[in-house]
């Protein structure tokens, strides 16, 4: 129980935020209206993705010095799960954009940069597939992963701030850390972030264990 409590906490938080996020009251803002509820589902995806990619960079650095296969497996599996969360973040964002901006993809800087940062990790997977030898693959892909991570940080956190974007939080548009996030929303938003991060981490550990078992059978 002491080791598995977070596996219970994660689903409870996600179920709670899904129900509460759709039912509890939200502040009424122009343009956003009820779509502000997307905050509970869209933003946690990015948080989970960032956490998973950070885990992967941590294990990539570790695998460069330890040269162990498990560290490499941990790095690649957290990227696999992180990409899924990134794509979900793009999709939830696009659906929201359809109802507020009028179209799924309007080439807003935030959308573009998020898509490019996912592309970085697709490139990582392509690089892995291009190399056959396992140790070489572990080493080179770890190096690319560490090289790409600062670029992803620049893409997601620095560049969108320099350009005008319609995305909430940019240039006077209502954003999640400004006036509109009242205490009712905080009570759902923070648990949602924590819950999805836990779910993401859990999926990653399961995938890692499956891969380890597969490797043992070979």
């Amino acid at each position: 129980m002491s080791k598995t409590w977070w596996k219970i906490l994660g689903p409870i938080l996600v179920i709670y935020t899904t129900i509460a996020g759709l039912l509890l009251g939200v502040p009424h803002l122009d343009i956003l209206n009820e779509t502000i509820r997307n905050l509970y589902f869209h933003v946690p995806m990015w948080f989970a993705m960032i956490v998973l990619f950070s885990i992967s960079v941590f294990y990539s650095i570790k695998s460069l010095s330890s040269k162990s296969e498990t560290d490499d497996l941990r790095a690649v599996e957290s990227i696999n799960v992180g990409i899924v969360f990134g794509v979900l973040g793009l999709v939830t964002g696009a659906i929201w954009a359809k109802f507020t901006w009028g179209q799924y993809w309007s080439f807003d800087p935030k959308q573009n940069f998020a898509a490019i940062s996912i592309l970085l990790y697709f490139a990582y997977l392509v690089l892995r597939n291009a190399i056959d030898e396992e140790q070489k693959r572990a080493k080179i892909s770890a190096i690319y992963n560490i090289f790409a991570f600062p670029m992803m940080v620049v893409l997601l956190f620095v560049l969108p701030r320099l350009q005008s974007s319609l995305h909430p939080g940019n240039g006077g548009n209502p954003g999640f850390n400004s006036y509109d996030l009242d205490s009712r929303m905080r009570a759902v938003f923070y648990p949602a972030c924590l819950g999805w991060i836990i779910i993401g981490y859990w999926i990653y550990t399961i995938r890692f264990r499956i891969r380890t078992l597969e490797n043992k059978q070979l």
Partner: peptide, 20 residues
């Protein structure tokens, strides 16, 4: 160059990094 097949990989790896 360490990964073996050159030109193609070079484009795939470098474009997402150079775009920002």
């Amino acid at each position: 160059s360490k990964a073996g097949n050159g030109g193609m990989l070079m484009a795939i790896l470098s474009f997402p990094i150079i775009i920002p």
